[in-house]
Design a protein around this nucleic acid. Sequence first.
DNA 1: TTGTACGCGTTATCAA
DNA 2: TTGATAACGCGTACAA
Lengths: 351, 351
Amino acid sequence: MATIKEVARLAGVSVGTVSNVITGTASVAKRRKERVLRAIQELNYHPNYVARSLKLQRTKMLGMIVSDITNPFFSQVVRGAEEAALKQGYLLLTFNTDDHEERERQVLSVLRSRRVDGILLVVAPSKTKPTHIVETLKAGIPVVCLDRLPPGIAVDSVTVDNVAAARECVRHLIAQGNQKIGIITGSLALATAQQRLLGYEKAMHEANLDVDKRWVRRGDFRSESGYQLGREILQEENRPTALFVSNNLMAYGVLRALDDLGLQCPRDLAIATFDDPAITQVFRPRLTAVFQPAYSFGYTGAELLIQRIESKTTGESPISIRLPTELHIRESSATIFSRPEARGEWETSST
Amino acid sequence: MATIKEVARLAGVSVGTVSNVITGTASVAKRRKERVLRAIQELNYHPNYVARSLKLQRTKMLGMIVSDITNPFFSQVVRGAEEAALKQGYLLLTFNTDDHEERERQVLSVLRSRRVDGILLVVAPSKTKPTHIVETLKAGIPVVCLDRLPPGIAVDSVTVDNVAAARECVRHLIAQGNQKIGIITGSLALATAQQRLLGYEKAMHEANLDVDKRWVRRGDFRSESGYQLGREILQEENRPTALFVSNNLMAYGVLRALDDLGLQCPRDLAIATFDDPAITQVFRPRLTAVFQPAYSFGYTGAELLIQRIESKTTGESPISIRLPTELHIRESSATIFSRPEARGEWETSST
DNA sequence: TTGTACGCGTTATCAA
DNA sequence: TTGATAACGCGTACAA
């Protein structure tokens, strides 16, 4: 692979001149410039970004850590981040943690060795303050947390108001006539899961509705837990008429559980959930869900991160960006108490 | 950020010794080793991989290019690739091309500048031989093509037998009693799209069934084209009773079209398709689909690529790996001619 | 077994 | 405007 030296020799100029042509930092005489360009073409020269990174002490690479890119919500986040990053010449190094804190720790270490300029992070569940994140910050590497906030750490972030969104969602279930409403939460080591539970409790409380302990089940945001807990709840002798499921994957699990038990949604159980991937919207039952702007999570996060990087303002007080959500009301929450005649004609209300 | 020099100074040894401790290339006296380890700990030293890459002339980074990570098929591919790569210490630099050849060209150029050790590539549609791929190969960068083969280029690859899979799938539609069967293809600039069309034609031909030209529509593997073409076909006066849709996204579009027209699957139209993301399997209608081992595409591809990289055998004759597919038969292809009484009880036959 | 010195390909500084 | 040269941080001969 050709080096800048070879280009310089072929063009009959010094390496400094070639560098100036490439980066455009200093002006170069027109004739020499042309000679250099021709040599670059001829040798099919591609500047060595590794060497440049070493010299400049920045790599123009961003770490992108999500729990599972296979979840349509996160693949959208990544997509958004890539778009914003690429636009400014940054590349994405992506990783999945499957929500394992240990894996997150390893990835963070790798990323520090790779000298990425910054990190976009969807944190894994953690009971205690994740020291590896603190240390990354302390090392001067900007981190922007997406969707979830790590406990006890002041860090830039892009989030939504989970409490309000969950509350609105459960309110809707109540408005549909449901009184016995259950919830399947994510791991309570995750801020988002806690907040959605809180929103649920608020809505129930302000409507003076009892919350039976057995209707509150704790999952882990994965499909299998939705399935298991769904089965359990549905087999209670006093089962709820509606279920608020804290994320999409678990809602899919609940649907499977319904199917197993010969039950149907919404006939036997109303369902409302979080996350609203376009891909599922064409199938039945259409899920009532809190839509989160997944793409914007990534895009906005990357923009914020790059701004931090380039303005060298790490250590300032954290910036937290709040994105809006929308409650998309569809057939899965149409209960026995209020079921329109028409099928498939549901409106999309927003907030 | 600490350097190897500082570690050496703190431990009271030379940089060579520190390097030996880190890489394990030469043995170091136990006591000194401990001192070094302690110094590393204390300084929170993370070896500079940029410098190492420059010295070693390899980055332990792989380029991963897909059309759209938002498509569950490709997110699985990426996931598999990451798993295999990480296991051997390689990192993934991921990119989406949205099937634009120009974008692919740019990304390839960036990747060469970044000095990635190899590239996993899902090629974009291309009418002519993509010279940028040839040149990447010529530059000595191993490339493994996933899922699709670029026209006229001998390159390592991981694919499935699209012709056979499509044929089996259409045969199934025929066996269900359908005689008027249409197809929505992807861009015929894509090998996979061509092959699936070919499989369709073979199945129709060997069953002595006519193929009405108006039943053969050319999409682009995106949902919107499935919707548009689905509408067109369904509004023909002599419309088919079954449709073979060449990929998942377009199938979702067709479902939407059905809905718009007040029709239902499978009552008014049987559907069979390609790709079979787990996420959709819990919804109705459950789609009959050719399952492709998406995760394995990535995993196997990365393994093959790394083997190429580490054995330095670029330029040898290309290796092509064929992965098996499975036809998953579900309710979407249950036609009026053969419809079991039970709902939701469909078997999964495989080949 | 340990230390020294060179080079990887750039960019930036400085003198010409 | 141009050319020569010193870093950037590391791994690895080679010498000790």
